[in-house]
Design a protein around this nucleic acid. Structure first.
Lengths: 201, 201
DNA sequence: CTGATTTATTAACTTATGTAAAGAATTTTA
DNA sequence: TAAAATTCTTTACATAAGTTAATAAATCAG
């Protein structure tokens, strides 16, 4: 059995996987046949705290934010963009109710599979075991770097770093300011002041 | 070939591994023969920023802190205690010069192996591939929870949570206050005030 | 044991951020 | 296109945290 490249159903996700591991046609097809698609309109939620995360999503287009909610107060801690995985990986790993919320910032086209599908693939194909390791390593690296930035940089330094990388990725104008403030660990008012300070110097 | 339990050279590390995966005698021995021991006196460094991390350490006894240094200013972001891995995992993964410093808080007895040894074991034994995945997942989970605490809790709430868990683990009195303050993202002066606020309420 | 060093607390002052509320600007949608 | 809703900025005020320096307490080393 062979896979014609023109027939690959989810080329974006297929390329994403290939950045981690090389897959034979069979290995890819074993996952591909479990993939489903879903649309998520702006402002709708992919997951809410208290729910049990069971799926890993892949963002084909659109964007989303991850936030925690306590006493009506929301703290946005992460953004997701097209061509990346989205979901509550921690919740999948621990089988504990989710502590996070993921909400679409723009209309989203998603693709997803059950986390259980992945764990089954671990047993069936060594290559998915490698993928699982590299994925966890990748997620670890992202958090490690983010944590270091939070603890070693001032809010102003974090903002400058954020706009610098987000301009390169052309995502700045896709995220409301208030969520960026929260991501930086400050209030919208404070971010507004920082922006003015930078502008008038 | 069989391993008598009384002959296991590093029982603490062996138990640690077993929390992640089941190992046959052969699988264990392949790693055991690569293990080395090392002592690290209080205040000495296990790694300094700029150096290339190549080893994974395991703390048999003692404690250490991880800190970042910028302009003579130190920010402590993590503590290590006996029966846990220590090292610059990020540096091992990326092969980039380390951005962190790890310093002994007490005299340490360590055991270590080359990161390269682990990657070779990935190829030789599927079980180590699983270990590598579970280790990365474990590290990811720790960071994910820590990041959420930093972004959603106030310094005072973080301190209360910290003493609560550290009293259970009997580690509070082993860490100088100034490093705890840094870990919480505040100055020693500020922590002192928080402590007084809590005491007089 | 004692002097020296390190660590923790306290005080005084400065500064940045949080809060609340109002107004301006922008975006949405009917 | 106009009205409504949302988002951003600004102001005023309160508060918590940073900075510096002095003192007190605890720890270390000879």
């Amino acid at each position: 059995m062979s896979v014609n490249k023109d027939e690959i159903k989810f080329p974006l996700f297929h390329s994403y996987l290939k950045r981690f591991v090389d897959l034979t046609d069979n290995e890819w097809l074993a996952l591909e046949e479990q993939l489903r698609v879903r649309k998520l309109p702006k402002k709708q939620h992919l997951i809410r705290q208290g729910e049990q995360a069971k799926e890993i999503f892949f963002l084909i287009s659109g964007s989303a934010r991850l936030y925690y909610e306590k006493d009506g107060d929301e703290k946005t801690t992460y953004f997701f963009f097209e061509n990346n995985l989205v979901g509550d990986y921690l919740g999948c790993l621990t089988s504990q109710p989710s502590t996070i919320n993921i909400q679409a910032l723009e209309d989203c086209e998603l693709m997803y599979f059950k986390y259980e599908t992945l764990t089954k693939l671990y047993e069936q194909f060594p290559v998915y075991q490698i993928f699982g390791r590299k994925l966890a390593e990748y997620l670890f690296m992202g958090l490690d770097i983010r944590l270091a930035e939070l603890l070693t940089l001032t809010p102003e330094e974090r903002y400058l770093k954020f706009i610098n990388t987000s301009i390169k990725r052309k995502i700045l104008e896709r995220i409301p300011q208030q969520y960026i403030a929260s991501y930086l660990g400050i209030t919208p008012v404070s971010l507004s002041r920082i922006r003015r300070r930078i502008a008038t110097s």
